[in-house]
Amino acid sequence: MGGALKQTLQTLRRIASGLSERTIVALIHLCGISAIVFVFGIFFFVFREGSPFLRDIFDFRSFFLSEEWHPTSVVNRRYGILALLAGTGSVTVMAMLVAIPFGLGTAVFLSQFCGRRTREALKIMVELLAAVPSVVWGFIGLMVMNPLIVRLTGAPIGLNVLNAGIVVGLMSAPIIVSIAEDAIRAVPDTYVEAAEALGATRWQLVYRVVLPAAKSGLLAAVLLGVGRAVGETMAVLMATGHSIHIPFTAEAPFFHPLESVRTLTATIAAELGEAPRLDTGPGGIFPVEARHYQSLFVIGMALFAITFLISVTADLIVKGIRRKA
């Protein structure tokens, strides 16, 4: 009797362990596939929501090349995102002007010029910087930078490209620092030794050997920073001034960093909550066609395309460098 019970227990245990093995394998597979599923899922959803707009009234010229964005106007409804593109572009450029020198400089300093203890301390600081929530950055832009810029430059309003550019630049810098530092530390010691033996000074070593050897990693770092800047929403919503405006003119100076702009991401964040879908809202009050709602998803597709282009470019450049190397 006892023996039979023991045997049954053993069989049960064997079945259980076989099951758990299979479950774990299945779970791991699921995790691996989920990344692909999520990307396609997001793309599908964005596309589905925006597709009626694309099908019915989308027109390349009036969408991409017009700066008139009046999605809620009753008499003159316009969906032109040129100003929003210009806003995203100008904030990104300004942010990179801040983040690239800052980020690469910090990475070079961390990996080449400072002692071990300083490096550890600084790295923790950089990680803390990366952990600051974007709404806090937006708050800094709104409450700290805003009056500062007004006082220093005499601009009528401190919520502008400069403000958002600095804020987003400081947000992207930690990413650039950590990836660029990894890239620099991956440069073989033998390169450094060889250059030292040739009598290179510290700076000649960095400039002529270390940076060229790490360039594909540095480029990847910069492009990830660009991606972060393009996608940033909350901070730019608070720091740009959120006004539809193109900060460029044909006559010099061409670029006006002290003017307010609005970005693609901020537009989606600010307007999506108020743009009704077809099947929501008490019947009759809202416009029958949810064009505004759909157009925001088309903006989302445009953002998708921009970030996709950036990462493909990065990939191609990095591969190009590899092939030459």
């Binding site: 390169y191 030794e193 040739l198 009598g199 290179a200 002529r208 050997v209 060229p212 050897a213 190397a325």
Partner: peptide, 30 residues
């Protein structure tokens, strides 16, 4: 200045990640 008076060759070849020309021109340029 001291190191520039001395040529050093290591056990394993170390081609710096530069062109052949720049490898050799590295020290004179410095």
């Amino acid at each position: 200045a001291l190191r520039r008076r001395i040529g050093m060759v290591f056990p394993l070849p170390v081609g710096l990640p530069l062109s052949v020309y720049d490898n050799v021109a590295y020290a004179p340029r410095m």
